[in-house]
Nucleic acid binder design. Structure first.
Lengths: 382, 382
DNA sequence: TTGAAAGCGCTAACAT
DNA sequence: ATGTTAGCGCTTTCAA
């Protein structure tokens, strides 16, 4: 810019036609093209409101100068960013990344994570609506957390799972639309957020019923999720419901409840189950997610047990890796891409004049049971 | 501040303790906590520079008010956004999306695209450096294009492939660092951009040599890429080089040059090749990317030709789908995630005081030949 | 169709 | 440790 001993450069001096000045602004373009800054602005925001000749002049000057409109200034002046955001959990936990996963996904991370698919869905949908997408893995809280950063830079955003304290989100959602990609923490004491979730309970119930009715299994075990995962809880509820419907004993809690929902933990859960069971091996083990189920597949193989002959195994999520393992994993597939799309739709709707003050909304997306080999189904396409 | 009867609401009136005012600002927080706006700012930017008691007061007020710092205002005042960007091609072309791909990737888009992996790599790397990532599929040009939007909202960004006219990028790169995820358009007339590319020629040459030396193939055909793809060109060059080294005739152009590099086009290319060849079937067909090779696999199967017995097939890229098709596809794997990481490193470096004025840099990342079944190698892990 | 000027919400001197 | 204040670069009335 210019060398002053003052805080900032002054406009007056900057205008003194120095062509080498870096980061040109509307003022530079205006001067060079002999119009006012308002006209420069118009050229970008509403080209048709400027006479063609003028417009060309301005554009030419902008080119010469290397002018790029500052998104920040624009956003500040117009109170909108044209950007939607997504905060997702940092799934690169060491356990998943190095230990267990590395063995399977030998192409370095060739396969999509849950969050990748949602990113894709959101990006596509956002683009359709003219928005760009800002993504950030959410870490810890604190005043200067990533969420805050995202929140300050977007017109609205989605939060994957319960990555961020609901409390913080409620504060933020007073300022801009926030949609949570998970169910409400407490269905009865509603937060004021929009939610989009998948039919966890229904899916798990359907899958459980499949095991019971179609494969005739009765001795089942359920490996749950981490303590505070409502998804995992809902899945367990679905499992329990199916048992009840079939006249089996109704458990009050999962047979095993791992610390993490990783492959390593899945393997560990199997060991625990086998040690505990003695001769009374379960005929089927249902896992609250695919990662654990896949870990279990390996553990069972190491123990010399055949899947599904000796024991059936199922997961939940429908991650691509589940198609590749042998036997291919029977699971419940979540419509992740749609999750992202719905999130964008909801945000865009809230951003439109219409949805501003409407009631919080909770959408539940349907899931599919995917029958593969690990439950005893043949080589059915999945 | 001052009470004027002009366009916008005045701070003075807003300060009149109205707690219901929407989108609270530093002024609101400052007033409510009895400090100056500077102190509020400090609490967020440099908490330690504020006495604990004060900080708490401010944070409490912010909570009550639902205050979220405006990224725009911050960025404007501090001339930085804390965001890095990525523009990538809109790969959801109808052809790939519906026709050919749908048949294989039957999980809807269960498998990663080229761009997904780069996004992942960049996001991870950006996070390590404290940046968020803004992503946008780049469309056409024009003053108000998406690139411009991205450019205005980030501290620096990467452009995947030649998505954006180099011309535009050069303009933009006068204002902020831009790294192109592709080689320079013209190696001799250098643009002023940083580039990161993969060793296309080397990789294709190594693969070709493998076919010639290890499998003893001599009658080879190369299916190139679109006219203006330097990647595809470099791959062809590598192919030609390997032929030369082996004492085979050196072609001046690919045997087939499709319009698009899709599965459908790959299939079409095979048909063309077979029709043309008559009895003189090639022993091996090398494709400039995996998509086409996979399409070719299907086409060959339809024609009753066995791979690799009748004809070997290879691709380039190393997309996950290549592992799943039968026979599994021999290919050259690009380190896509690293591409993203290197991009971020480069950008961050440029943003640091050090790299500002340095010469444009061009990095070339090494690639791996992945030997699977489609070239005649056994069931080697890949 | 164009210009003039206030103000968007924050940061960063500088002063205290 | 905290307050004052001048911008950051744009959009947007309002007036011409």
């Amino acid at each position: 810019m210019n060398a002053l001993s003052f805080p900032y450069g002054t406009r007056g001096e900057q205008r003194a036609g120095d062509p080498v000045s870096s980061t040109p602004t509307v003022y530079d373009v205006a001067e060079r093209s002999g119009v006012s800054i308002a006209t420069v602005s118009r050229v970008y925001r509403n080209p048709d409101s400027v006479r063609e000749a003028t417009r060309e002049k301005v554009l030419a000057a902008a080119r010469d100068l290397g002018y790029v409109p500052s998104g920040n200034a624009r956003g500040l002046a117009s109170r909108s960013t044209g950007v939607l955001g997504l905060c997702f959990p940092d799934y690169s936990d060491p356990d998943t990344e190095s230990e267990a996963a590395a063995a399977d996904a030998d192409d370095d991370h060739a396969f999509m994570l849950y969050s990748d698919q949602i990113i894709r869905g959101m990006e596509r949908a956002a683009r359709r609506h003219g928005y760009a997408l800002l993504i950030a893995a959410s870490l810890s809280g604190g005043p200067e957390s990533l969420v805050a950063k995202v929140a300050g830079r977007v017109d609205g955003f989605a939060v994957l799972a319960r990555t961020v304290p609901t409390e913080d989100l409620e504060v933020i959602s007073r300022r801009l639309p926030v949609v949570m990609l998970a169910g409400p923490r407490d269905p009865d004491g509603p937060d004021h957020l929009d939610h989009i979730e998948v039919a966890n309970a229904d899916g798990q119930r359907a899958l459980t019923r499949h095991l019971i009715e179609d494969h005739g299994l009765r001795r089942l075990a359920f490996v749950g999720g981490v303590e505070d995962s409502p998804d995992a809880q809902a899945r367990f509820d679905g499992y329990a419901a199916a048992r009840q419907e079939a006249g089996l004993s109704v458990p009050r809690a999962p047979d095993v409840r791992p610390e993490l929902m990783t492959q390593a933990e899945g393997a560990r859960a199997v060991e625990a189950l086998l040690d505990r069971a003695g001769a009374e091996l379960p005929e089927g083990i249902l896992f609250a997610n695919d990662q654990m189920a896949i870990g279990a597949l390996h553990a069972l193989e190491r123990r010399g047990l055949r899947v599904p002959e000796d024991v059936a195994v199922t997961g939940f999520d429908g991650i691509p890796l589940g198609r590749l393992v042998r036997p291919a994993l029977t699971t419940v597939r979540q419509p992740m891409r749609r999750l992202g799309e719905e999130a964008v739709d909801l945000l865009v709707h809230r951003l439109g004049s219409s949805g501003t003050a409407a009631e919080p909304e909770s959408r539940v997306l349907p899931v599919d049971v995917v029958r593969r080999e690990s439950c005893g189904c043949g080589d059915v396409a999945g």
